[in-house]
Amino acid sequence: MFQTDGETASRGTAGTGRSVAWGGLLLTFALALAYVESCIPFFFGVPGMKLGLPNLAVVLLLFRRNDGGKNGRARAVRDAAMVNILRIVLAGFLFGSLFGILFSLAGAFFSLAVMVWLMHTGRFGVTGVSIAGGVAHNAAQLAVAVFLVKTSGILYYAPFLLLAGTLTGALIGLTAGAVLVRIPVEKQEEEK
């Protein structure tokens, strides 16, 4: 599932196995964080407002392989996207609702797209990318909410969501950074 290119998988390189292991580990990590998050009443009645703890796993995956080479980065993005989908669907069934899943997917994917884009510009650190991801997540969810209720009145929540996204994004970015410096950067084994 993680990195299942026919040729590399059949060659059975160490990179493939490690990629699967990392994906599974971080997916489990994201689910554990989703559980913790579901226990913390943080939203203050603002729909779509969450701590975004599981995003820590996504940020970690995104930056872990960032040791250069287009191949490694593309794989990092693919792994992050995969963990993103799986953790939302699984966490949704475990702790949330089907409605929540559809809602979260919108936020998570816009957020990932923004983070990947900022990461590729190379102008921001882990914290900045994470902040942009948090804000993008909230913005996308609010946009979906406006579309759903067909009323622009709920844009009233925009400043709160913006502030919350910045704050939680910064916390997650700093945490991710603290973890990343303790994980050895994985070297590219197979560069075609």
């Binding site: 930056f63 921001f124 650190g125 900045g128």
Partner: peptide, 25 residues
């Protein structure tokens, strides 16, 4: 090897977002 944890741009981004939300409030 890795992307730096915190850059000046990150702080600018955070500052701009906080100012924007405070302005909207």
């Amino acid at each position: 090897g890795t992307t730096p944890l915190l850059r000046k741009n990150d702080l600018l981004l955070a500052g701009a977002l906080v100012l924007l939300s405070l302005g909207m409030l």
